[in-house]
Design a protein around this nucleic acid. Structure first.
Lengths: 352, 352
DNA sequence: CTGAAAGCGCTTACAG
DNA sequence: CTGAAAGCGCTTACAG
């Protein structure tokens, strides 16, 4: 069934059929109704490729999850508590707005090609980029393509430094700096003076923000930065486990440990527990993200909640707005975090 | 940059360019190399829509997650521990095989349209259907379309009953019956005689299988089916919580409860704990699926592991084989489950 | 208000 | 081995 067939059946031309499908103004109600009836009756659907080829939208957005460091694992984004929800949320939001979503994960530099191809082959109207390793070069290239693009978790200053037209670009962030300050000051308020950190991946905007906020806050409160309590977790479960174990074995540790994401916090707690370091009695732990597991484990993890729902929703709305040229200015949105206090931190007594 | 441009640059015709892109046999190496060099140099990518329109593959598969009962929630598949991993695994597998994946969730009968459209508009080469409510009518309709289709968790006998050509169809299941028998017999082996069940959604193949296996096994071992210990959890967390709470309040409960998925098992445990019923001291619990949380909670949940990784991978491989017409017979694959014993069940003493 | 025609960028018989 | 041409199914100026 092609538009030609519908045209014949309705006694009009293909042009008219196309006009009613695309809801043009200058079609009389009667003609419109007639055509619509036939379309309905035969359950006709215009071929999306032909439409796209003739210059129409594809009604699909791309979602690209970049996870360069986790190549080895068989199931990869799957292993990460951060991507799963983002993917699901983006799909749900886009679908409910009438868009399909085309997904591709990238684990190696070569996979980047797939992103470019999706744009060049015109498979999508616009795209969303999440994940680590969104290096400037890639972004510059994408921005150069003039296709709608939304970046989640990206350093705005890096973009501002580029001399490009970025009217089809938007950036969505969470207020990680503030969230981290909040968490550290909460620990300080509980009486902690010796606070360590399990760092995230520093190639990431959020990884850097969280670390800098940690340093700033300690400094602001006149607390020392202790090299030996700065662990390199890289946002990864396994790495965090090893780092925590190393600390446990060393025999000395801080009274509190701020972890730059929950995956690492949870792994660290497992490592500590395995070495008979009790949480929160012997060590207080705070995480970041507030994944589902945080509220279900034992002890329940105190964590900074990432506004992941808002971020994913906003990302979808932004690309769509950009695709429809409803918006044409570079925009940036940052959503607030919230400290969710649970059971993994304890108050230090005066003399401790 | 179009194939025409490449042709000019290479000093050949569009036909030849097309032939080298599609790797036709009858192009001399020299010509091929020349064309390839230009393509490489200009980073040319053929327009995917034009190709598809001219009869080529789209190189994308559809993934449709059906979740009709969970309409209300803001973030829906997201809430379900089953879909997330499937989505991620399918995307990962398909991507690594060079396919894009187009995702759409369906929450209402109207959303079904989207699935049909994706096929009719030729957006995908083939598709995978997961989730509940895969009613015969839908399947009949899809099978009628002659497009490659893989069904995950579906009753084969229902398909066999249809008088359709199903050479573009495949079904992927897990051996839930055996898995359930295994779990129930494990409980019986621990000395349990009073075993309840938290049922899944009965509109689902796996929901029915697990329930039937439960009944059969009790019967086989001469144990009574106690109406009051048969709970309707519907595979949903909230429903399961309420049902468990109802049981707790009633004052009498079985010595063991088999839950048809982990989401329900975990919620039930929370409800019991809230009512001072200790797991496993006062009540043993077994789940199904073996989601990540199962091994991380306290006490750790004993559960039947769903071969979700194998299922997702097989589903992708099947659709692709079907798309490439490498396979043309109706096929069905069923993967084994495994009982993962942890801490949520205890042995009953002789006199209990 | 509406139809005939050109065009979107490919692929693939058809000739040669 | 390779080019000219038709065709895939739409949309959209262009005329009228």
């Amino acid at each position: 069934m092609r538009s030609e067939d519908i045209a014949k059946l309705a006694g009009v031309s293909r042009s008219t059929v196309s006009r009613v499908i695309n809801n043009y103004a200058n079609v009389p109600e009667a003609t419109k109704a007639k055509v619509l009836r036939i379309i309905e009756q035969y359950q006709y659907e215009p071929n999306s490729f032909a439409r796209a080829l003739a210059g129409k939208r594809t009604d699909t957005i791309g979602l690209f999850a970049i996870s360069m460091n986790e190549r080895e694992n068989a199931s990869r984004i799957y292993q990460n508590s951060y991507f799963g929800p983002i993917v699901d949320l983006v799909v749900d939001t886009a679908n409910s707005l009438g868009y399909y979503v085309l997904i591709h994960t990238v684990y190696s530099p070569g996979d980047f090609q797939k992103i470019k191809q999706a744009y060049q082959q015109k498979r999508i109207d616009g795209g969303i980029l999440v994940g680590t390793q969104k290096d400037s070069e890639l972004v510059r290239e994408m921005v150069g393509q003039e296709a709608p693009l939304v970046l989640i978790d990206y350093d705005i200053s890096e973009i501002m430094a580029e001399r490009l037209n970025k009217n089809h670009l938007a950036v969505i962030n969470s207020m990680d700096y503030e969230g981290t300050v909040h968490a550290i000051e909460y620990l300080i308020g509980l009486g902690h003076r010796s606070i360590g950190i399990m760092k995230g991946r520093m190639s990431t905007f959020s990884g850097r923000e969280r670390y800098v906020a940690y340093e700033d806050t300690l400094r602001k409160h006149g607390l020392p930065l202790q090299e030996e309590f700065i662990l390199e977790g890289d946002f990864l479960k396994e790495t965090a486990y090893q780092e925590a174990e190393r600390l446990a074995v060393s025999g000395i540790w801080p009274t509190a440990l701020f972890c730059c994401n929950d995956d690492m916090a949870i792994s660290a707690m497992e490592a500590f527990t395995a070495h008979d370091i009790r949480i929160p009695d012997d060590l207080s732990v705070v995480g970041f993200d507030d994944v589902e597991l945080a509220g279900r484990m034992n002890p329940k993890l105190t964590s900074v909640k990432l506004p992941i729902h808002e971020m994913a929703t906003a990302a979808v709305e932004k690309v769509i707005a950009l695709c429809n040229a409803e918006e044409s200015a570079f925009s940036t949105l940052s959503f607030p975090t919230a400290l969710i206090v649970r059971e993994s931190c304890r108050e230090l007594k005066e003399h401790e």
